[in-house]
């Protein structure tokens, strides 16, 4: 009754989902930039995005090389680094990173991975709920949070070859190059 977060975690099942894709062997940054060019975010000026939007997640754990590509910049991460909508999180060959979203969704990435935070709204009082992430390559472990409980259809995890929809579930994804 009291520590709901903890109990939910214990209750969840593990699912695995892995795949092969034909992603080209270009650099992480290049893949992310190409993806951004092909899938532009809604037309809001970058200054407005930075100023008006709250953080959507924070980095909690990391090892090795991990960076965030935000608009035109690449930022090396620290613990408690804030993550905003549109950020692309990238790990190097020696890197791994774990983040927690504001709805308690946790996401961790293994080496050589790229994930883009496409959408995140957690405003139940306004009926605005959405969490959409996209893995470009690499491995990810995903444990769904409150948005999945309130509105499972608002949760999506996109990959180059398929989209995962779910509820109350932990799953793992691998995208081979």
């Amino acid at each position: 009754m009291h520590q709901r977060g903890v109990r939910q975690v214990i209750s969840l099942s593990i699912f695995i989902f892995f795949m092969n894709t034909l992603a080209m062997a270009s650099s992480d940054g290049e893949i992310a930039r190409k993806h951004m060019a092909d899938h532009p975010l809604p037309a809001v000026s970058t200054a407005v995005v930075a100023a008006s939007e709250n953080e959507v997640a924070r980095v909690k754990t990391f090892t090795g090389t991990v960076s965030i590509a935000r608009i035109e910049k690449v930022i090396p991460v620290n613990r408690d680094e804030r993550i905003y909508r549109g950020d692309s999180i990238q790990t190097g060959a020696d890197g791994a990173v774990g983040i927690i979203f504001k709805d308690n969704t946790t996401l961790s990435l293994g080496p050589n991975s790229v994930v883009i935070v496409n959408e995140f709204f957690f405003h139940p009082s306004q009926g605005k709920l959405s969490i959409v992430n996209r893995i470009i390559k690499g491995t990810a472990v995903y444990l769904s949070g409150v948005i999945a409980r309130l509105s499972p259809q608002s949760v999506r995890f996109q990959t180059p070859v398929a989209t995962v929809g779910f509820r109350g579930t932990k799953f793992l994804v691998s995208v081979d190059e």
Partner: peptide
């Protein structure tokens, strides 16, 4: 079905850095 060994082989890196789950008090 997929066994623990294969799981570790593919996802070891990501599993190692899973954040400590948040604690919620009501």
């Amino acid at each position: 079905p997929i066994d623990e060994k294969e799981l570790r082989r593919i996802f070891g890196g990501a599993l190692t850095v899973q954040p400590v789950p948040p604690v919620t008090y009501i």
